[in-house]
């Protein structure tokens, strides 16, 4: 289990002010990975704000975000939910033994055509 991070810390790391959110749900409306996520972008914003962080840290949702910034760009209030998801994800993978992607797993994921870019990106996103 991942112990909860304090809200303030996540807000500091992400630079996000969740109080700006007007709860319109456009982030979740535009999210391409919505169906794969247990918690959706708008929930990240409201749950971090209310300190309900542990479920987020223990959820696979943090690894489903594609960092495509659609939520950031389309948010009418400038909340930047993707940055908050990134902060939670970093809080998780930085902990000892929490790497989501291990070097040993990689060979099985590869095919002849996969670009290097995919591998480095995945490592940066999923591991310390």
């Amino acid at each position: 289990m991942n112990k909860a991070y304090p809200t303030e810390e996540l807000l500091r790391i992400s630079g996000v002010n969740p109080n700006k959110c007007m709860k319109c749900g456009k982030c979740s409306a535009t999210c391409p990975a919505y169906d794969e996520m247990e918690y959706h972008p708008h929930q990240f914003v409201s749950m971090v704000n209310s300190g309900d962080i542990e479920p987020l840290m223990n959820s696979e949702s943090i690894f489903k975000c594609l960092s495509c910034f659609a939520c950031v760009d389309r948010c009418p209030r400038g909340v930047e939910p993707a940055k908050l998801i990134e902060a939670v994800r970093i809080a998780v993978v930085r902990k000892q033994g929490n790497n989501h992607l291990l070097a040993d797993d990689v060979p099985n994921m590869l095919d002849d055509e996969i670009p290097q870019q995919a591998i480095v990106s995945a490592f940066r996103k999923y591991s310390k």
Binding site: S14, A82, K83, E86, A118, V120, R124
Partner: peptide, 13 residues
């Protein structure tokens, strides 16, 4: 050197 593929938005990164 490799850019890392994705930009990390975290301020402590």
């Amino acid at each position: 050197q490799c850019c890392g593929g994705v930009y990390s938005t975290a301020k402590n990164d």
